[in-house]
Write a protein that binds this DNA or RNA. Sequence first.
DNA 1: CAAACCTTGACACAACTCTGTCAAGGTCTC
DNA 2: GAGACCTTGACAGAGTTGTGTCAAGGTTTG
Lengths: 128, 128
Amino acid sequence: MDALTINEAAETTGWSPRMLRYVERVGLLEPTRSAAGYRLYGPAELQRLRTLRELLDEHAIGLSDLAFALRLRRDDELRQATDAWLESEAQRPDDVASSDWLRFEQEKHEKLLAALARRIETPTPETV
Amino acid sequence: MDALTINEAAETTGWSPRMLRYVERVGLLEPTRSAAGYRLYGPAELQRLRTLRELLDEHAIGLSDLAFALRLRRDDELRQATDAWLESEAQRPDDVASSDWLRFEQEKHEKLLAALARRIETPTPETV
DNA sequence: CAAACCTTGACACAACTCTGTCAAGGTCTC
DNA sequence: GAGACCTTGACAGAGTTGTGTCAAGGTTTG
């Protein structure tokens, strides 16, 4: 059977074992378990993990954001409530361009990019 | 004209002035401004602010969660990417009931409820 | 023009997110 | 049965969110 254990999965996806457990904890990806309780990552899981990293990096979002998106699609009432609230906004979109929250978002991106840069500078020890 | 300044708005909505500025900063509600730059909250804004508090309290979510939901509906590419990722999950829903992320969510709720309780115990100074 | 507002910016602090690391104890394989 | 894995749980530390508070300086209005 072609399923990897946590360290192997970490190896091929770029996540650390620690983070794989964390990703599971926040409910984003739950690997199957062996009889003895070992986590087993199949090809589909591995692919999803790689995609996950891209998704987070490219849009500068966090696991908790995605966890919330997941919650939105599982909890109907929550989704309706948030949708209703967001829809009630009557902001002229012209305003948005020059407004404050844009600066806020920009700063956030800059910080995340900086963090990313740091991650790249420090060249992962790899399998030395 | 029936628009309140920030302190008045704070008074009738239960938010602090500080938080009204913060809510604005994260992009959730942007009041109009007077010629001199004073924030002006109209009836619609006031109502949205009250609804906002309910929404957050009842579902134990944060402003940042809502900010993300807003981002999802403004950024098409982001929404498609997250939707795609979330849809690719093939988890039997039966598993969910006993799984780990549920405990995680529960703890989060408990903590938020505890915080809420504290907020109630400490009876708002009000206009003493 | 003084009192009572408002604005932005900064410091501060608790709680949460994201990561790493280490400990105590099962599992697997030779 | 020893070495290399795995599991959960805990401590730890940097960065973000959510709040309060205070300072320096405009605005409004009696």
